[in-house]
């Protein structure tokens, strides 16, 4: 994917409902990301969990969402059965 930014007139929770059945997941209050586009994780100096995407962008994962993320990554998604 090329680095494109698209503006949507939807609330983040509405986008979440649309994208969660696919490979997307909530990472924090303000971030939804594609799980298949994750390059690696890193614990930053101050204790935040950082996620680096294949595109080179970097976001933080809230502790509250880590368990969910781990489940999706390790066990695959149970929602669409793959």
């Amino acid at each position: 994917m090329n680095r494109q930014s698209i503006e949507l007139k939807l609330k983040l929770y509405e986008i979440e409902e649309l994208l969660i059945p696919h490979q997307f997941l909530r990472f924090s209050k303000s971030v939804i990301g594609n799980v298949d586009q994750i390059a690696r994780f890193e614990v930053s100096f101050n204790g935040n969990l950082c996620v680096h995407f294949k595109t080179g962008s970097k976001e933080y994962v809230s502790r509250a969402y880590v368990a969910q993320l781990k489940q999706k990554l390790i066990w695959g998604d149970s929602k669409d059965g793959n």
């Binding site: 298949d36 994780f41 990554l73």
Partner: peptide, 19 residues
């Protein structure tokens, strides 16, 4: 806790590589 978070990140990284 820091050790636990590091291990957590390692586990996540391992699952990303496996995928």
């Amino acid at each position: 806790f820091r050790y636990y978070f590091k291990k957590q990140a390692e586990a996540l990284n391992a699952s990303v590589r496996r995928g």
